[in-house]
Every structure is written in C-alpha cells, then in structure tokens.
Computed example of a mutant assay.
Amino acid sequence: MSQTIADINAKIKAGKAKVLTATELKSLVVDIGVTQAAKQVDVIVTGTFEPMESSGAILNLGHTDPPIKIRTCWIDGVPAYAGFGAVDIYLGATQEADPSDESPQYRGGGHAIADLIAGKTLTFKAIGHPNDCYPRANFETTITKESINQFYLFNPRNLYQNFIVGVNGGEETLYTYLGPLQPRLGNAVYSNPGAISPLWNDPDLQLIGIGTRIFMGGGIGYVAWEGTQHFPLQKRLENRTPIGPAATLALIGDAKQMTAEWVRGCYFRNYGASLMMGVAVPLPVINEEVVARAAVLDEELVAPVIDFSIPRRVRPIFGSVSYAQLKSGKITIAGSTVRTAPLASLHLSEEAAKTLKDWILKAEFTLTEPVAMLPCDRAFLPQDVRGF
C-alpha cells in the first residue's frame, strides 16, 4: 500500500482518516503484524512532555512615545536579550532573575514565558540607548500576551531523539540538569519518554522535516530547522535507533495560541530554570515501511548510563539499558539495583499525542509536506582552547 500526504489530508477533511497514537499502533502491530496494521492506519501520532532547556520566546513590544531603542530589559525581573531591532527581544528559558531583583531566585525565563502564556500580567523594565531616532532613556510598564505584537516561541533545540541516563558514583549528592543524583548510585534519572517520543518513530528522518506542522504547547507549531547539537551520525542499532543523543529539532510556534496546561516553567535545584512543554508530531503512513519503523518498542531502545561524578566532557559509562528496564522502576549497575525515575511526564506525553489525535479526527489539523528534509550527515564537534 502507498498513499500521499494529500491523500491523507483528503481523508482527514472527509472525516475518514484512521488515526492512532504511537502506543496504539505498537499494540496493534503486536496483535496483527506490520502488514495488516498498515491497512488500518493513516496517521501515527507521537508525543512528549519533557524539559526543553534550549527554548525561548521572541517578543515585539511595540513602540513607545517617545520611541525607545532598548539596550537592556527585564521581564518580571528576568533579563531578556535586546540586541536586535529597537523593541524586539528574546527571552531565554534558562535565563534567571537578577539576584538583586525582588523576584525569587528560583524564577527564570521559563516561568515568565509560561506566565505570559497563562494570561498573567508581568512587569517590564527597559533601559534605552538614546539617539536621534529613539530619544527615550528608560521605560517601565506591565505587559500581557494581548498587549504586545508578536509573541512566539523559537526553540533552538527540542525533541532529542535519544538522551542519557544520569547516575552518581561519587560520595556527594550532585545537582544536575536531570535533577538531584544521589551518591553511591542511589538513583538513575532519564529524560526521554521512550517509544512514544517523536524521533524514535522516524529514526532516519524520512518523514519529519522543515515545515512539518506539529502540536506545540497547546497550539500549532512547525519544525523550523535542525536543532542545535543535531547529531544524526550517532551509532545505531540494527533497527536504526541511536544508542545515545542523536537528532534534534528546532521548533517555532505562536505562543498566543498556547495554553498553561502544555507550557510550564520549572527549576532544577542548584542548577537553574528551564521550561517543560508538550509536543506531538504526526507521522503520515505513506507506506508499510512507516509502520514497520514506528512499531519499535521500549525493549528495543537503549540509552547510555553516564556517571556524573566525573566532571569531564567525556564521562564514564556503565553500559546501556533499555527503556523498558528504565520504565520498570529499577536497573542493575555493577551488580547493584538502582531505582529509576523519568524526568519527562509519561502520562502527559501520551496525553499530548491523544490531544493531537483528537484534533486530526475532528479535521482541525491537517498534515504538511516538508519543504526540505533535515540533514543526516552532521557530526558533533567539541570545543577546546585554541591559540590566537
């Protein structure tokens, strides 16, 4: 069987498309096999809800009277970048509030972004660069998502195809981007939700490309480019899934459409602020091979177990474990049983996929053809001190 995205969209608009979440598709394949399952699905919906640290929002404040060219600014006490345009700014998710500000120290850009999406009113302060075009020296006001022009998320790195499992073989608790890691292998933390996550189900990026329409934070977004640290050349198993961090995506979406349910600020103790977001990506079943790739199970996916107690770029590895083992709640490392916990919400990852499935079944969402495919030849370059 084969069909085009246009064929699938025609079915969606006619209310005849057969749509399954990745979890439903995998169960169906187990029951009846790839060939028969491929006859019963037009769209497979993948999803995740996890920390997406390399994220941020672009905002256009609109011009003041007299006009200002913003040099430095703060949104709810969190510094934002103002190095382009007069009133265009970028608020990074991991940027933290200034210690001298009245905002709590655990607050960062992810919280401010989530609060704006939730409809809250936030303070805005700016220092200008006075000149003949923009004479104003400073400005203070309050803003909401309705009182500014553009407000969209542009996230340079989201949706890791795979990631690591963090452990701590040392003697002291470590506070990391995976949360606290207890000493003497006291716990293991993983961040990828496993087999339902988007890029596991399209391992060679044959479907997802630049221009792919997605569910992003409760609204509609798009794949904008390859993500930073995009590393499709990672070593892979026979099923084409990577053994460690591999492909990533850069995403863009209108934050004014997004909802508080799907975008939340978060803070990692002694590490910093971040952003949790729900994303769902539809995969068009254009042939049987799509179903074969998406049938991959947690038992068939592995991640490396990394010891954070060694503070180097390349850390010791305690081998690899499957996502089925991780989701069981415990793994074995060096003969010891270690409890595991996900950083991603497995429940909300499923709910993101179910939400997009519902949109498609109601013909509120159609699929797009990528305007270009993502590169599959990117190496991963380290950074070292070089001479001048």
Rank of each mutant, 00 (worst) to 15 (best):
A324G: 06
G108E: 05
R184W: 10
I148M: 08
A372Q: 12
N287Q: 00
I164K: 09
L361A: 01
S103M: 12
N168W: 06
M52V: 12
N192K: 04
P66E: 14
E364P: 01
P66C: 13
M373Q: 03
E369M: 07
G335R: 08
P232D: 07
I89E: 11
G209S: 01
K13N: 15
Q325H: 10
E53Q: 11
S322T: 15
V189R: 15
V302L: 08
A303F: 04
K362S: 00
K18S: 04
K256F: 06
G62P: 14
A260F: 05
E146R: 10
T228I: 11
Y177V: 04
S100W: 08
S27H: 11
A14E: 15
D298Y: 07
L249W: 10
L116C: 05
Q161M: 05
A6Q: 10
C73R: 01
T64Y: 10
H63C: 08
G110H: 01
N60D: 08
I127K: 14
R136F: 01
S328N: 09
Y177S: 09
S309T: 01
Y175F: 14
K26Q: 15
P284I: 06
D88Q: 15
F308W: 14
V19L: 03
D7E: 13
P304L: 02
A255T: 02
L374C: 07
T228H: 10
R157N: 07
I143C: 02
P193S: 12
A97L: 00
Y152D: 09
L205G: 01
G92F: 03
P282C: 13
P51C: 00
S320Y: 14
Q95S: 10
L159A: 06
